[in-house]
């Protein structure tokens, strides 16, 4: 109703006031977006490996550390910059890879459940280290992710079978309209695929695992 009465120069003033208000809101939003930590949840799809299955039953145990794994990247001034959550994607990856590697795979919440199921072994992966390299810091045109794992294989009673270190690496090039979060996600997904390929192909070559598999056959 009020707008109808505004004419000529008055209308211009109203428009300019609105414009100033809009710009002020935009500036505040931009300033606020520069502060605080950006949350990046790693999401990707992982194919099933084409490998020969090992005839054993394995229980997989994800502890709280891997379920809720996140990595905090700090800026050069020491401020929290990116919080990268990859616990869920790690579980999705193992859930896609392990059934292709073993005859039967079950997910257990504790070792008692594994014992009750009468499995041959319990697999308990752990993330030891996560590293991120951003183009803004390295001055390279790639996003890079390194992850170091401790792969643990136990008997259903909780005794040691094997314990080995595995590292994975992923990189993705920078692109004009790609956000930093997308770059981090893409590099992390490549690293997770690298983990899946090296884990599935090298599992039977780990000396302790090889000995354990031989003992099952004899």
């Amino acid at each position: 109703m009020v707008i109808k009465r505004i004419t000529g120069i008055n209308r211009l003033v109203v428009i300019n006031k609105n414009m100033y208000f809009g710009m002020a809101v935009l500036l505040v939003a931009l300033a606020l977006s520069g502060c605080g930590v950006s949350n990046v949840v790693i999401e990707g799809s992982f194919p099933t490996p084409n490998i020969n299955k090992i005839p054993v039953t394995v229980a997989v145990y994800y502890d709280d550390a891997i379920r809720g794994f996140s990595y905090l990247e700090y800026s050069e001034t020491g401020q929290e910059e990116f919080n990268i959550e990859s616990g869920q994607s790690h579980m999705e990856l193992f859930n896609a890879v392990l059934p292709a590697m073993f005859d039967r795979v079950i997910v257990v919440d504790n070792l008692e459940d594994a014992r009750a199921e009468g499995v041959d072994a319990v697999f308990a992966p752990a993330i030891e280290e996560f590293q991120l390299a951003l183009p803004a810091k390295t001055k390279l045109d790639v996003y890079e992710v390194w992850i170091k794992y401790n792969m643990r294989l136990l008997t259903a009673e909780g005794d040691y079978i094997a314990d080995w270190i595995l590292t994975s690496y992923g990189k993705t090039p920078t692109e004009t309209f790609r956000s930093v979060a997308d770059g981090i996600n893409e590099a992390a997904v490549v690293a997770l695929r690298d983990l899946a390929s090296s884990f599935s192909l090298s599992f039977g070559q780990v000396p302790e695992v090889r000995d354990w598999l031989s003992s099952l056959q004899s």
């Binding site: 194919p47 490996p49 084409n50 020969n52 690496y169 695929r193 690298d194 390929s197 090296s198």
Partner: peptide, 29 residues
């Protein structure tokens, strides 16, 4: 690459034709 997973990933892909020959020994590939 997805259908061939994990044989044609950056770390596992054959670099020479000799590697491809060895890879083709795998029934699944």
């Amino acid at each position: 690459i997805d259908a061939m997973f994990p044989w044609f990933e950056p770390r596992t892909a054959p670099l020479r034709t000799r590697d491809l020959e060895q890879l083709m020994v795998e029934d699944v590939v």
